[in-house]
Amino acid sequence: MTRHFDDLQLGSIELFCLAAETGSFTRAASLAGVTPAAVSRSVARLEERLGVRLFVRTTRQMRLTDGGHNYYEQCRQALTQLLDAEREVTGGQRVPSGLLRISVPTPYAHYKLLPLLPAFRQRYPEVHLDIHASNRNIDFVEEGYDLAIRGREPADSRLIARRLEEAELVVVATPAYLARAGTPLTLEALAGHECIQFEMPSTGRTAPWSFNVAGKRLELETTGTYTCLDDYLATVTLVKSGAGVMQAYRFTVQKELDNGELVEVLATFGGTSRPFMLIYPHARHVPLRVRVFIDYLIQAGVSPPAAPCA
């Protein structure tokens, strides 16, 4: 293997990452035990080697350029992998530790994942969790995430997908709305109702509703004057407020169905579901903190009480 980096260059990369994380050459120097001038020289060497500016510096602030941000994300990931490999080889990673970054959709975060995390932290107190609760797709390499949970299998063959569960879908409304607008008994009847929509961030299209018709799955486009973007739980809040009917994951509305706040409709066409997948990049070396978290989720079955976090 051809050698591409000497010790000075690797040290420069570490100091650059410290400067990016702290936003200051002085603070980075203090943490590294060197002078601010040494940090400045290291960054200058990298900029000369790469032929790009990594920071925009003024008398008041310092920030990464777009190129600097991309370079930092990949350098941080590479340095973390080197550290994990060293710990594993020397036995220092017998105890999982370090930062674990997870991206998860809002309904799954609030009703499934977040309630499991305190027990995980009790078991592995040296693992720190950075949780991105959003329905926006993320880029593992660019944004430095270790794991993601998504409602579909990834198209990218470089990613591994493990099925966590099949989440049942159910159409619901409040008793007050049904008293006012009537109860739909057929799929055709939905055309006369206020069907609350959710726009999928990945496609910019509203999500179709899924039904079981004579043993076959039917994807049905519905219409309505309410469309929620990005936050899926906004649709649940709307339907609980009597705005209309909504097809939701059962786990997000089970409490309200049990106490009568919501009523299931079109149950004869129910029984369909959508998968939730645990997704992570292919890698020869998977950090121990990632491996134990994957095992924890699989063993837990991701089935805590169906109640959102406050």
Rank of each mutant, 00 (worst) to 15 (best):
L113P: 00
V302N: 03
R49S: 11
G11K: 11
I298D: 02
Q77V: 02
S273G: 05
V141G: 03
L83K: 14
K240W: 01
P208V: 10
L229Q: 10
R53N: 07
L117P: 01
P287W: 00
V104F: 00
F120Y: 13
A109H: 06
D258E: 15
F293I: 00
L46N: 14
P96F: 00
A37P: 01
V171N: 04
V236F: 05
S273V: 03
S134V: 06
L117Y: 09
G67L: 11
G301P: 04
N259R: 14
T203A: 11
G11V: 03
L18Q: 08
E219Y: 08
R291S: 15
D139T: 12
D156P: 12
A155T: 09
I298F: 09
A234D: 15
V292P: 00
F25P: 05
V56C: 05
Y177L: 04
A300L: 02
G67W: 06
I138N: 02
C228Q: 06
D295Q: 00
L79I: 12
T268V: 14
P184I: 09
L164E: 01
F269W: 05
R158V: 02
P36Q: 06
L117I: 15
L233K: 05
C309T: 14
L46R: 10
S97D: 14
V292R: 00
E14V: 06
Q81C: 05
F5T: 10
M1P: 03
D84R: 01
V245L: 03
F276D: 13
Q61T: 15
T90F: 07
R45K: 13
L79G: 07
S40K: 11
L64T: 09
E168F: 04
R94M: 02
L147G: 03
L233S: 03
S12G: 10
I149F: 01
L100S: 01
A161C: 08
E126T: 13
V95E: 13
N70H: 08
V52K: 07
A248M: 13
L262W: 05
V43C: 07
A191D: 14
I279R: 01
A173D: 05
A173N: 05
A248K: 06
V170W: 04
E48Q: 10
S273C: 12
F5G: 01
G98I: 10
G301T: 02
V236N: 07
V34F: 03
T203M: 11
G92Y: 03
P281A: 13
Y72W: 15
R87A: 05
I196Q: 00
L229C: 11
R217N: 09
R150Q: 14
A85P: 00
A248C: 15
A44I: 00
V104I: 15
R289Y: 00
A161V: 02
Y177A: 05
R53I: 07
A248N: 08
M200L: 14
S134K: 01
G33K: 04
I294E: 00
Q254H: 08
R163F: 01
L31F: 07
T186D: 10
E264A: 15
H69W: 12
T227N: 15
V213D: 06
G224W: 11
Y249P: 02
D156T: 09
V292F: 00
Q197P: 02
D6L: 02
I160W: 03
R217G: 10
I13M: 11
V263K: 13
A176N: 06
E47S: 04
E126K: 12
M246R: 06
A243C: 13
H110L: 10
G98V: 11
C17D: 04
T183M: 13
E73D: 01
L262F: 10
V34G: 04
L220K: 07
G182A: 00
